[in-house]
Design a protein around this nucleic acid. Structure first.
Lengths: 229, 229
DNA sequence: TTAATAGTGTCTGTCAGACACTATGTG
DNA sequence: CACATAGTGTCTGACAGACACTATTAA
């Protein structure tokens, strides 16, 4: 009990997700240090004990530094800890995931950051593939019973666009009427006065935006879509 | 980026739960070191990087050392991290929860460990009250759609006893027929040949035990009880 | 008028909650 | 036989999935 033990390495890794062309994409950062220098991995970094108040703070700071953006939604995923996940030794990674609308990051791709479809990914350094898969599975399962995908939407959008995003996240198609019934029950959207279409060759759709003062984190957990077959 | 930062303190804390007299109880350990020496807190300790393979290993070792028992069920709860939760400075607690049948721990109460009802608890050192509440809420919500409370049962038990345990965890009453329908759907129990009652003054009940080779962790997530009103 | 999507009405099978009923032991 | 709990049959309202229908714009 009184022996001193080597301290584990503590870092924060982030699974940053977006929806692009109907598919979930994750951000990968080019590692500039050992181990795995020159390889693509989940963006991550050490906790700065002098500036970060907590782990979410650290995640936000790291994302801003590595990707130059602020995500509207962060959540702790889980912690991956053990002796063998990092060649430097016993390590702890407090993994987080974040969602960001594709429109908001069209400009952030640069030499040290790239976007790849989550489903086509095979190998990643450390246990980052397991972390990514855990995040994707969490997001998909939350999508079944919450309004999480709203964080992937731009300022205003139509219900059909929202449905496409849900379908993209889930990788399944949903019934239109049932989908609208549930979104309405959530009661987190308001109509935007000006309907929009202008030249689509068909009936224009109502635009919606998030209700002001709605905290989606608490408004979650009442959607109840059924898992796809 | 190249600056060195102070390393956060990393520990593992455990919410050990059992059901006693129809109520959820948690184990508290008497702290023998600063900070908060002499106060009751969740059992916890440092990671031993030379012997623990991962965080679950550490949790099992700590529980064995502090309470002298092995729990049939461990799961990582979430990680509590930040600057202000521990007076020693920036700290990380990888919190776990564990379930153990009351019968298995009748003998483990001693000077440095005590059992208290979770709902009557007010103050605890660090952020241990928040950790405890998170664990209880997790267990209650998992109980609604999984077979988690089976970890609180002795070797053999009747369906009525199992229902009482579910009701104790949830703090609500359940319909007998509906409860049995769902347990049957889970398909994780088998009848024990000898029915038992011997002197109860009424019809004896069938005893059940867990099916062999059933991993409850994977058999979970299909119960579907409705949240109490 | 047609094409194309927006938006709504309605049927039906499933299933959870409620509750009543039968079964089987003890005293 | 009375009593207490074990165990089951069945009704019903809510609701999700399916699908058909109407509405509204552009060309």
């Amino acid at each position: 009990m009184s022996t001193e033990y080597e301290t584990p390495i503590v870092s924060v890794d982030i699974v940053l997700l977006t929806l692009k062309e109907g598919q979930l994409y994750t951000a990968l950062a080019l590692r500039d240090k050992e181990p795995f220098a020159g390889q693509w991995a989940l963006p991550g970094g050490y906790i700065h004990t002098n500036e970060d108040q907590d782990d979410v703070d650290a995640a936000a700071r790291i994302l801003l530094a590595k990707a130059g953006l602020k995500s509207p939604y962060y959540e702790q995923l889980r912690t991956f800890a053990g002796r063998h996940r990092d060649p430097r030794g016993w390590s702890v990674s407090i993994a987080h995931y974040a969602l960001v609308p594709f429109e908001q990051l069209a400009h952030v791709e640069h030499d040290h950051l790239k976007w790849v479809p989550v489903d086509s990914l095979r190998g990643l350094p450390f246990d980052h593939l397991a972390i990514l898969q855990t995040a994707v599975s969490r997001v998909r399962s939350k999508t079944l019973y919450s309004s999480l995908p709203l964080y992937l939407m731009p300022e205003t959008f139509t219900l059909t666009e929202l449905q496409k995003v849900y379908e993209g996240v889930l990788g399944a198609t949903l019934d239109k009427h049932g989908f609208r019934r549930r979104i309405k029950e959530l009661d987190v959207l308001v109509e935007v006065p000006g309907a929009v279409s202008t030249g689509t060759g068909h009936r224009p759709a109502q635009q919606y935006r998030l209700k002001r003062k709605v905290n989606l984190a608490t408004a979650d957990s009442n959607l109840g879509l059924k898992a796809p077959a």
